[in-house]
Structures are given as C-alpha cells and as structure tokens.
C-alpha cells in the first residue's frame, strides 16, 4: 500500500517536527566533526538524510511506548526524548553518558524514555522489540513498540522469525524499515530478492505500508493512523520508509563505491530542506526558521563542548554491572 498523504499538517506541528529533525541533524554534524577530529574514538554511523523517519514516527509515541534501534540510531533516541547531552557524553566515552561511557554510539540506551537500546549486531533488535511487545501484552499494558531497522537487516533470519512471531502472537509492534539504499558498502537491491521488505511482511499476513521517508509530514500522518490501530490490539503493522543515506556508512567512509553525481543529487531531497520549504509556504519567516536552526546548532555545540571537557568514567566502572555473583573485583591500582 502506498501513501503520499497529508500535506494538510498544521503549522505548529510541522514546526515541532522540523525542530526535532534539526536537532538530530545538528547532533549528527557535531558528532561527525568530533569523530573526524579524534575526540570520539569509536565508530559513528550518521543518520543524516534520514531524520524525517525518526521525527515523524516518534512524534506519535507516548513516553511509555518503547523502541529498539540499530547502529544508526542517534535520531531515534533524540526523537524519543533522550537527552543529547548524555548521548554526546556517551559518544565521547565520558562520565554521565547514557551508558556511563561503557557502550558508545552503537549501544546507546535510555530506558526512562522507552529506548531499549541501539545494537551493534544487524537485525538483533528485531526479536528484542517483538519480545518487548510480548511482555507488554502479558502485563496487560497498552504500550506500542516500534522496531527500527535497515534494509540490510531483512536478509537475516531474525527478521523473518521476528515478524512471524509478532504475527502469530498478534503483538503490538510497528516495524519500521529504513530503506536508505545501502547495507554498508553494498547496494541493498543487489543482495535482496523479490519485491523486498513489504512483500515479506505481507506474506506473513502483516499489513505493510510504504512511504516517502523524507517527507516528515507524510510519515507523521501515516504513523498517526497506524499507532492507534496497534494500540487497540490489532496486531503488528509494517512500514517501509524510502530514504537515502546522505553520508558514508561511518563518519570516515567517503562512500566512493556509489555514483557521486547521483549521491550529490540526493541532497535535493534532503528532508530538512523539504520541510523548511513547506514551512515557508505555510508562512514561517526566514528569521523564524533560522532561529530554530541556530538554537539547535547552539545546543549541540554546547553539548559537544561539555562532553569534551567531561571526565572519563572512573576505572572501577569497567567491572560494574557485569553480574551479581562472580564478577571480577576491582582493586585500585590493578
């Protein structure tokens, strides 16, 4: 089912969505710079170009709803309400990070806002999201779980197993496949058979939708229809969001394996640019827009400066939170 809906979004709501996207973009650009300068040590996978999916989906969730995400999950975290300050501290491996600096970019989690974890293993979040929904159902809670994953994940077994499970147990899950065209350096199409993600979902009786994932109003509108259906007990639904990974696989990947003209041309469809144009059409002034932009950029600049100045975690934390019995014992100076 294809949906190119709702440009009759109200202006205030679009301003909020735009602000979320701009904050994600500013976070990613700041993280990119800090990665290239060596302030961030581990791998950083940027979601630049994919912000509309995170913003449009999460705008329809309650705090008590839950999500799982991937190695490319910064946007989903911010949209779900995670503090970018704690996220940046995590990327820098500093005290006060979402995971105390022990996880890094690929393992951000924030259970207080229902963010059940990014993941370093492709498709590993799918069964986890399904299980979280199973748990909600057992507990009689009306939570919805959103499971974000990439187009590369649909060729792993846990994808098929997770969808089947969600369908037979009629679980409250929204599967969101971010079709950004790539799995690392490989074109996703080249390694994916048949009609792709939606056809696979439909083969298991899960209703599947497709949307322009760079149109934040459209994503918001459609997900706004889907989430109440899931919450009412209708079982899982599936959404494929077409987008484009505007940067390389990681912050240090120049992505020379793709057609450079085609890649450059994709910036025309930048979801921020599109939402900005729509906002101007709805009467927002250039000044109002750039005020949102500079607020987001200022916020993330401060976040990055704070992270840079912060202390590393106390060494003893290397041995914390492993297990209750049998964990190694920390001895200072060892």
């Amino acid at each position: 089912m294809s949906n190119n809906s709702s440009h009759n979004i109200d202006r205030d709501r679009l301003v909020d969505l735009y602000r979320t996207m701009r904050r994600i973009r500013a976070f990613e650009e700041t993280a990119e710079a800090a990665s290239l300068s060596g302030q961030i040590g581990g791998a950083v996978h940027l979601s630049i170009g994919q912000e509309a999916i995170a913003a449009g989906v999460c705008a329809n969730l309650r705090l008590s709803d839950q999500i799982t995400t991937t190695h490319r999950g910064h946007g989903h975290c911010i949209a779900k309400g995670t503090d970018p300050g704690a996220m940046m501290l995590e990327l820098f491996g500093k005290e006060g990070g979402t995971c105390g600096g022990k996880g890094g970019s690929m393992h951000i989690a924030d259970f207080e806002v229902g963010m059940l974890g990014a993941n370093g293993v492709v498709a590993a979040g799918i069964p986890i999201a399904v299980g979280a929904a199973h748990g909600a159902k057992l507990l009689g809670e009306d939570r919805v779980v959103v499971c974000f994953f990439g187009d590369g994940a649909i060729n792993r077994g846990p994808f098929m197993e997770g969808l089947n499970w969600a369908a037979i147990f009629k679980l409250p899950v929204l599967f969101v496949c971010e079709q950004n065209g790539f799995a690392s350096t490989t074109h996703s199409d080249a390694v994916t058979a048949g009609a792709g993600a939606n056809a696979r979902a439909e083969s298991m009786g899960i209703e599947a939708f497709e949307i322009d994932g760079n149109d934040v109003a459209a994503v918001d509108g459609l997900v706004g229809d889907l989430v109440p259906r899931i919450r009412a007990g209708g079982g899982p639904l599936f959404l494929s969001a077409r987008t484009y990974r505007l940067k390389g696989h990681t912050s240090v990947d120049p992505a020379l394996y793709r057609d450079q003209d085609h890649a450059a041309d994709q910036w025309r469809h930048d979801p921020l640019k599109r939402a900005g144009e729509e906002l101007r059409r709805l009467g927002l002034s250039d000044d109002e827009l750039s005020a949102i932009d500079s607020a987001a950029e200022g916020e993330m600049r401060r976040v990055s400066e704070t992270a840079d100045a912060a202390d590393h975690p106390d060494l003893a934390h290397a041995y914390d939170d492993i297990q209750d019995i049998g964990a190694p014992v920390w001895e200072a100076g060892s």
Binding site: G93, G104, L315, A327
Partner: peptide, 16 residues
Amino acid sequence: APRAPISYAKPLEDLL
C-alpha cells in the same frame, strides 16, 4: 583479561 565485557571508554578499555 579480566572476565569483563570490553568497555567503550578508552581508559576502561585500556584497563582490560
């Protein structure tokens, strides 16, 4: 190595 998962933060990683 100690029987600990490997930390991300550099000094904690180095500890192992």
